[in-house]
Simulated assay, not measured.
Amino acid sequence: VSHHIAELLNRPLNPQAPYVGASAFAHKAGLHVSAIRKAKDAYEHVDPESVGNGTRFVVSEMAGKATIQAKAEDLGLSMDGAVINQVIDELKRLEHEGFHFEAADASLELLMRRATGWKQEYFSVESMRVITDELVGGQFTTEATVRVWIGDERSVRVAEGNGPVNAIDTALRSALRGSYPQVSRIHLTDYKVRILDGATATGAVTRVLIDATDGERSWTTIGVSANIIEASWQALADSLVYGLLHATK
């Protein structure tokens, strides 16, 4: 009910909300995760599924093997010790660069799937270009050109938008919609940008978080780069891949 009302109001559900929030049944510390797997009812006073929620294992660069293993099992992934160590090393490297996977479960899932050898085959990007022009009168227009391959078929789409991110999103969706009509159900609900190193002013590394929903589930993806367009593109592409992954299961 809470998610339905939030969807009708076009407002993101507060992740800290009791019972229904994404963090209501979230667990992070390695020992804590290990313990909850042995005695779940000692840490969760009600069954999360009874209120339409679920147990969530939060992963960061401080995660241990138990946390990664629990997350993998939660996702239905089979990981041996070597792959788990690979994931931990990759998490440490990326979080050092500015990624923050505690807030981006969807990007984390894609990272873990790739570690097992999975590759997304929905589309591959040949190129992406964004042009912004200032017109007479001080108005700005933005145009994006996206070239992607879907299987053996090359698709080129051009779209205008309210800024570069909207233009890229529109062009990419246009390229994918013919093969994947499911993208029409995927909607962005929030777009957040954070400057990670203010000392470098406009050259600072930026972190972009994109919240999306298909009406049934909600997810968050992340992108990090000194180029805000690149960071946005990373988060946007992952968001659509994640949506297609779960729409086609």
Results as ranks from 00 to 15, higher is better:
1 V>T: 14
2 S>L: 10
2 S>C: 10
3 H>K: 14
3 H>S: 13
3 H>G: 10
4 H>F: 13
5 I>Y: 11
9 L>H: 07
12 P>E: 02
13 L>S: 10
15 P>W: 02
15 P>E: 01
19 Y>H: 12
20 V>N: 04
20 V>K: 02
21 G>V: 02
22 A>F: 08
22 A>G: 11
22 A>S: 15
24 A>P: 08
27 H>I: 15
30 G>T: 14
31 L>R: 14
39 A>C: 09
41 D>A: 12
42 A>M: 08
43 Y>T: 07
45 H>K: 13
45 H>Y: 11
46 V>F: 03
47 D>W: 04
50 S>Y: 08
51 V>G: 00
52 G>P: 08
52 G>E: 00
53 N>R: 00
53 N>K: 00
55 T>G: 09
64 G>E: 06
64 G>R: 05
64 G>K: 04
65 K>C: 08
67 T>A: 15
68 I>A: 04
68 I>T: 06
69 Q>G: 08
69 Q>Y: 07
70 A>Y: 05
70 A>N: 08
72 A>G: 13
73 E>V: 04
74 D>W: 06
75 L>T: 02
75 L>Q: 05
84 I>P: 11
84 I>Q: 06
88 I>E: 02
88 I>G: 05
90 E>M: 09
91 L>Q: 08
93 R>A: 14
94 L>W: 04
94 L>S: 07
96 H>Q: 13
97 E>T: 08
99 F>Q: 05
100 H>Q: 13
100 H>A: 13
101 F>M: 00
107 S>Q: 07
109 E>R: 08
109 E>I: 00
110 L>V: 06
110 L>Y: 04
111 L>R: 02
114 R>I: 07
116 T>N: 03
116 T>C: 02
117 G>L: 03
118 W>S: 06
121 E>R: 11
122 Y>L: 02
124 S>Y: 06
125 V>F: 01
126 E>R: 14
126 E>K: 14
130 V>L: 04
132 T>I: 02
140 F>Y: 13
140 F>S: 11
141 T>H: 05
144 A>S: 11
147 R>V: 15
149 W>H: 14
151 G>T: 07
151 G>C: 08
152 D>M: 11
156 V>C: 06
158 V>W: 05
159 A>H: 08
160 E>G: 12
162 N>V: 13
162 N>F: 12
163 G>Y: 10
172 L>E: 01
173 R>S: 07
174 S>K: 13
174 S>P: 01
175 A>S: 14
175 A>I: 05
180 Y>I: 00
181 P>G: 10
181 P>I: 07
182 Q>T: 05
182 Q>F: 07
184 S>M: 13
186 I>V: 15
193 V>T: 09
196 L>P: 11
199 A>E: 13
203 G>K: 12
209 L>Y: 04
210 I>C: 01
210 I>V: 10
211 D>W: 03
211 D>H: 10
213 T>S: 14
216 E>M: 11
216 E>T: 15
223 G>P: 11
225 S>L: 03
227 N>P: 09
229 I>D: 15
230 E>G: 06
231 A>H: 08
235 A>G: 10
238 D>L: 07
240 L>W: 04
242 Y>Q: 03
243 G>F: 00
245 L>G: 07
245 L>C: 12
245 L>T: 14
248 T>I: 01
249 K>R: 14
249 K>C: 00
